[in-house]
Design a protein around this nucleic acid. Structure first.
Lengths: 125, 125
DNA sequence: CTTGCCCCTGACGCCGACGTCAGGTGTGAG
DNA sequence: CTCACACCTGACGTCGGCGTCAGGGGCAAG
C-alpha cells in the first residue's frame, strides 16, 4: 500500500489530484465547494488529499457524465461511503438507474436514426 | 392523406404542433429562431404549420437528447431534407454518430457502476 | 535574493435550451 | 358583443459545471 514508514499515508496537493483524474484544478475545488470532497489542510492552507481522492473524482466525473447533479451525488454519497442505506436512498439509487437507462435508450434510438441517414446518404450521394 | 377537398394541406397553429410533439409553444418558436423550422403566416401573423412539423419537432428533440446543439442540427438538416450530402456533411454525420456512441458507452459504464452499489446496499443493508 | 511554479480566495463570465413576464392582437362560441 | 383562450413580439431570468481573471502567499533551486 502507499503508506510511508511512519505509517502516515502519502498526501497529494490539488494539482496532482487534478492531473491524475484528468480534470482541472478548478473542478476539484468546485467538488469541495459542493460537499463532495473534503481535504486536510497544510499549515499554510494548501489542500492535501489522500490517494483515494483520484478515484473519487473519477467517480464524480462518471456520475456527471450520466447526468446526475452535484446535489444528487451528495445525496447518494452515503451509500457509497458508508455502505449503509435507508429506504429513501435505495429508492433514489433505483430511480437514478432508471433515468440512466432511459437516457441510454434515447441515445440508442438517436444513434439508429443517424445510422439511417448515413446509410441513405451513402447509397444515394 | 390529410388533404382537404381543394387539394390544400390542413394547417396547424403552433399550439397544436406543440401538443402533438410534447413540447412547449416557446420551444417551437425557439426552433424557428434557430432556423430549424419554418412556418407560413396567416394574414394576422399567426404561424401555420404543415403536418410534418410534428415529426420534425420530435426529430429535433431526439437530436437534442443525443447532445447535439441547434447549430449542429442546422448543419445536418440538408442531409435529412434534401437527402444529398457533400463530404464534409458525411464526415460530420459520422463524427456525431461516434460521439453518441461514446456517450452511450459512458452511460452504460455509469449504470453498471450504480448497479454495483445497488447490489452492495441490497445484500448489506 | 530572485525566479518560477504551484497554491489560495473571491467573484464575474459563459453557454444553451428554453421559462416567464409584459403588453398587445386574433378568434371562435354563445 | 363579450368572453375566454390562443397567439404575437420582445426581452430578461435560469441552472450547472466549470473557465477565467484579479490580487496575493508558499517553496525549492540557483
Amino acid at each position: 500500500m502507499s503508506v510511508t514508514v511512519d505509517g502516515t499515508e502519502r498526501l497529494m496537493r490539488i494539482g496532482e489530484v487534478a492531473r491524475g483524474a484528468g480534470v482541472s484544478v478548478r473542478a476539484v475545488r468546485y467538488y469541495e465547494q459542493q460537499g463532495l470532497l473534503t481535504a486536510d489542510r497544510s499549515p499554510s492552507g494548501q489542500r492535501l488529499y489522500r490517494q483515494d481522492a483520484i478515484a473519487r473524482v473519477r467517480f464524480f466525473q462518471q456520475m456527471y457524465a450520466a447526468g446526475l447533479t452535484s446535489r444528487r451525488i451528495t445525496e447518494l454519497l452515503p451509500c457509497w461511503d458508508a455502505g449503509h442505506t435507508d429506504a429513501d436512498q435505495r429508492a433514489m439509487l433505483r430511480a437514478e438507474r432508471e433515468r440512466i437507462q432511459a437516457r441510454i435508450d434515447d441515445l440508442v434510438a438517436a444513434r439508429d436514426r443517424l445510422d439511417q441517414v448515413i446509410a441513405l446518404t451513402d447509397t444515394h450521394p
